[in-house]
Each structure stands twice: as structure tokens, then as C-alpha cells.
Amino acid sequence: MSQIESSPSPIADLSYRNYDLGLQNPRMRWWVISKLMIQLAFKRKAVWVCSVFSAWYYIVLAIIMFFVEQMSSASGNDQMSKSFISRLIWKDQFVHGFSYGQLLFMTIALYIGAGAIANDNRANALLVYLSKPVTKLDYVIGKWVGVFIPLFAVSAVPAVLFYLYGIMSFRSYGFFTDDPWLLPKVLLGLTFGSSFLSSLIVGFSSMFNQGRMAGAAYAGLYFLTNFFTQMITISWVMMHRGEGTESPLLPLITNVSYLSVDGLNIAMFKTILGTNGSARLGMPSPIPQIPRPDLWVVLLGVGGLTLLSLFIAWRRVRAVEVIG
């Protein structure tokens, strides 16, 4: 045991005085909670590593585009860059960037959010929060924003950088004219995507007294639904290739193939960008792209789960003491 524990400092009134400076209005308390969560999130090395890896599609695509352009200009023949770049559908590159980042976004959400409320439950921290001028709503909003902002930043920074690179170097290939509203749409899609993941993890976190249990449950849901939709996707591809093209079941299977955490997120992103997707890196692919599902699937899936998760979190937050 340390020296301090074995002989605690004598309690003596050496420095205490009543605090008589003003206190700020008790509104906006949620931002104090969010601020601490954001600070703690970006102190984790794992979050930085996952953030970098989540941008791999944008990085690879940007490198390819850069070298193709450089080689074309060096050789004086722009046919190579034209043939490659003209195959790219710009907005679909953002869909791919977002899709390939899903697993890492989920991992970041786990790192930041799994313990957001669960660890507070374990440490009885809710008694501290709620004995201050902080309401349940402030607390839940604070935790949610504390997960949302890092997730949004991690997903938006590479997308925005890629957009800036594209608009500076490939305007002549229709980067801007193909869809002048592309950047706002991308940012809107990323906002919804980050908000969906934040809501889910905060909802899961509120149901447990240990962050690792909340994380395990969330990851379990993620991988199980993902496995299920991968199976559906395989059956969709087989039906599409075979005689089943006209099958009345095809629209249903299309919708069901998006019923996973990342499936719903991608579906929502495709819907906002108004695309069904195209081949990765513009390469011809024998596997067809599954079109985006019906709008009601997206609204019901993303909206419903977001609201349900936040409602659970709000209901579960109570200033009760956890013993044991």
C-alpha cells in the first residue's frame, strides 16, 4: 500500500473557502458530458488506428487516381486516365468508402460507446451526474453526442479530403457537374450513419453494468445480422443469375439483404445519394450490385432502431445505486 493510504493526510483547513463566484446557467450541461467523452475517445490509440484504416478505400482510390493521372501526363497520352476515370461513378466511390469503413466504424463505436453508460452504471456515476443540475435527457444527449462527434469526424474527414482532391483535380471528368449537391448529400449520409451507430451503441450500453458486456452484445448483433444478410445476398446473386430474375420474391430478398446494422447504414447512404451502387474502383465485376431497398425499409430500419435505442437509454438511466 502506498504511503498515502497507510497514513492519510491530516484533514486541516489550509485552503478551503466557500465558492462564491457565479455558476453558469444549468442549460447546455450535455455539452460538458460530450466534451469529456470526446477527449477520452481521442486519447485512445486504437481509435486513431481504426480511424486511419477506415479510410483505406479513399486512400487506395486516391493513390490509383494520382498515379494514373501522373503516368498519363508523363507519357503525353491521356487515354489511359480517360479510360480508367471515365468508368468511375463519383458518388458510388463515396458509397464504397462508406461501406468498406463499416466494420471499423463499428469498432470505433465499440471503443467509445460500449462503456459510455455501462461503466457509469458500474461505478454509480449516475448519482454524481444526476445530483448536479443535469437531467436524464442532458445525460443521454451528452453521451450520444460524445459518440456521434468522433464517429462523424472519423467518417467525414477522409470523405471531405477525397472530395476536395476530386474537385481540384477531376472537375473535367464531371466530378462536380455529375452531382453539384454531392458533398452535402455525403455529409448528410454520414450524419445519419454516425447517428445510427451512436444510437445503437448508447442503447446497448445503457442495458449493461459493464462496458465489455455491452460491447459483446452489440458486436454479436452486428455479426449475426451481417452473417444473415450475407447468406441472403448470396441467394440474391444466385437468383439474379439464374431464372429467378423475374421472381416476385426478388424485391423481398433485396429488402431483406439489407437488414443488418451495416446493411441498413449502407442502404440509407445509397438512398440519400440516389444510387444503386456500381463496381468497385470502376473495375468490371461478374457479381451484380444489389440495388438499394425500398425507402420504407430504410426509414423503418434506421429510424426505428435509432428511436428505440434512444428510448431504451432514456428509460434505463436512473439514479439508483448498484450494489455488488
Binding site: A123, L127, S131, E321
Partner: peptide
């Protein structure tokens, strides 16, 4: 409060 509490 009666119970131990802190911010983890």
C-alpha cells in the same frame, strides 16, 4: 451518496 461512486 452512501454508495461508492466515481466517473470511470
Amino acid at each position: 451518496p452512501e454508495q461508492d461512486c466515481h466517473i470511470p
